[in-house]
Deep mutational scan, measured.
Amino acid sequence: MGFKLLSKLLVYLTASIMAIASPLAFSVDSSGEYPTVSEIPVGEVRLYQIADGVWSHIATQSFDGAVYPSNGLIVRDGDELLLIDTAWGAKNTAALLAEIEKQIGLPVTRAVSTHFHDDRVGGVDVLRAAGVATYASPSTRRLAEVEGNEIPTHSLEGLSSSGDAVRFGPVELFYPGAAHSTDNLIVYVPSASVLYGGCAIYELSRTSAGNVADADLAEWPTSIERIQQHYPEAQFVIPGHGLPGGLDLLKHTTNVVKAHTNRSVVE
């Protein structure tokens, strides 16, 4: 069995187990497998329904001669939608809004960016022009300005110390501490036991640490421990890039980060 097929099978099995364990909360999309990078042309966006009122959005972007996937989250909030992270750029984010209108038909009224990198804030200006209120932590807003990236308009308070959590509509926002970046936030959907790890969490097929220019490698494993301790009931975990899975993604990420750190020390 090929690795790609095995990865998709694991996603399907995880979703099936969740649907059985929580039949009222989960209505997993039966329309197909989780979209992969090879299936999404740059400039297009796919939506994948995880649970009743919960979707991931998947886009792709060219970077350094390669094409990478990027995940975000959409959560229903009454007759409105909360968006977590842009679709990595203005063109993708405009396509995301169009796809949401086509498939869901509810307005996106608020959006949260989970850290300051372009795959999370690139497209904020498109959201703002569409009347979406954009939010991020003060740290993310400051770092985005320093980096020359787009800056969300509103500040999220109460997320300055490791372990801080605040309720934001249908989700809980959690600051686990520094990891992929010093400002990275985690998003949890309690009604569906869905954990969105953003770039602080890796997919299972990833074996290298990737972009760690703004990471705190020493603190990252401790931050992941905080996530595990705060959300032990999480059933569906979405990484910032690639295929979702279960809580095993947290341990896998820790292993990859520690291996990278150990290699760096040896070198």
Rank of each mutant, 00 (worst) to 15 (best):
P41I: 08
E39Q: 12
S38K: 07
T207M: 12
V121F: 04
E145I: 09
L81W: 02
V146W: 12
L143S: 05
S155Y: 07
E233M: 11
T222A: 13
Y188M: 04
L204T: 09
G163F: 05
V171G: 01
H57V: 02
S193E: 13
S264A: 12
P176G: 01
V112F: 07
S191N: 11
Q235A: 10
V132S: 05
A178D: 05
N262K: 11
A165Y: 14
S191K: 12
G2P: 14
L24N: 15
E145W: 12
D85W: 00
V37E: 15
F174E: 00
T261I: 12
A136E: 03
L6M: 13
V212I: 10
S191F: 12
T114S: 06
D216M: 06
A15P: 14
P23N: 10
S62T: 08
P23S: 11
D248K: 08
I20T: 12
G131M: 06
L83M: 10
Y48I: 15
G177A: 03
E33I: 10
R167P: 11
F236K: 11
T14S: 10
V45Q: 05
L159D: 01
K91Y: 09
L250Y: 05
L82Y: 06
R206K: 15
A90I: 07
P190R: 09
Q61F: 07
D164P: 05
W220R: 04
T14Q: 09
Q235R: 11
R76C: 06
R141A: 04
H180L: 05
M18T: 12
T222S: 13
A130E: 11
L13I: 15
M18E: 13
A59G: 14
G177Q: 02
S181F: 00
G72C: 02
Y196A: 00
S208A: 11
Q49T: 10
E44M: 12
R263N: 15
C199V: 00
L106M: 14
K258D: 09
A19T: 15
T36L: 10
E203D: 07
D164E: 10
I151K: 06
P138T: 08
E267D: 13
L185I: 12
R141W: 03
V257H: 03
Y34N: 07
V75L: 06
N184Q: 00
P35V: 08
G148R: 08
V237C: 03
A95Q: 12
V67D: 15
D183E: 03
I151F: 08
I58F: 07
S137P: 07
P244F: 06
T254L: 14
I238E: 00
E33M: 10
A234V: 08
H260N: 10
D64E: 08
L106Q: 11
G169M: 03
A130I: 07
A213T: 11
F63E: 12
N149R: 11
F63L: 13
A213L: 12
D52N: 12
N149T: 10
I186H: 03
A133C: 07
M18Y: 15
V42D: 15
G169Q: 04
I227E: 00
S191T: 13
S56R: 15
G158I: 03
G163V: 05
A90F: 07
Y12T: 13
V28C: 06
V256G: 01
D118S: 09
L250F: 08
E172L: 03
L173R: 03
Y196H: 07
L83N: 00
L173Q: 03
L83Q: 02
S56L: 15
F26E: 15
Y202A: 08
Q103T: 14
A178Y: 07
I238P: 03
A98Q: 13
S181K: 03
K4A: 05
D77C: 04
S208F: 09
K102P: 06
L9E: 15
T254M: 12
V194H: 04
G163E: 07
L247R: 15
T140H: 04
A94I: 15
L195P: 06
V257R: 01
R167H: 11
P138K: 09
S160N: 13
G246Q: 09
A15Q: 09
G65P: 06
S161E: 14
V108H: 01
K102Y: 11
V75Q: 03
F174T: 01
G158M: 06
R46V: 10
I227M: 10
T153I: 11
S16D: 09
S56A: 15
G43T: 05
F26A: 12
E172I: 04
I40G: 07
D216S: 09
H115S: 00
S155H: 09
A25L: 12
E157T: 12
Q235L: 10
T140A: 06
R128K: 13
S56P: 09
M1D: 00
G2V: 08
P239V: 01
G72Q: 01
D216P: 02
P107A: 10
L10N: 15
L73A: 05
L127T: 01
S162G: 14
S161P: 06
S205V: 08
S70C: 04
Y68P: 03
A259Q: 12
K4Q: 07
A21K: 15
R120K: 03
S22N: 10
P176N: 01
I238S: 03
E99N: 11
G245W: 02
V37L: 15
G89V: 03
F3M: 14
L106E: 05
A179L: 02
L10T: 15
S62M: 08
P190T: 08
Y12K: 15
S181I: 00
L9Q: 15
S22G: 12
F116P: 01
A19K: 15
K251G: 13
I17D: 05
S191V: 09
A98R: 14
P152V: 02
N149P: 04
D216E: 08
Q61S: 09
R141Y: 04
K8G: 09
G210H: 05
G89L: 04
E225M: 11
Y202M: 15
T222W: 11
E147L: 11
V132W: 01
P221L: 11
G163T: 06
P69M: 15
T60F: 09
T36V: 14
D216T: 08
V126Q: 06
E172G: 03
V67H: 15
F63P: 06
R206I: 10
A129I: 08
I100E: 01
L81F: 02
L217V: 11
L249N: 03
A51R: 08
V166A: 08
G78N: 11
Y12E: 11
Q61G: 06
G65V: 07
V194M: 07
P107R: 15
A136V: 04
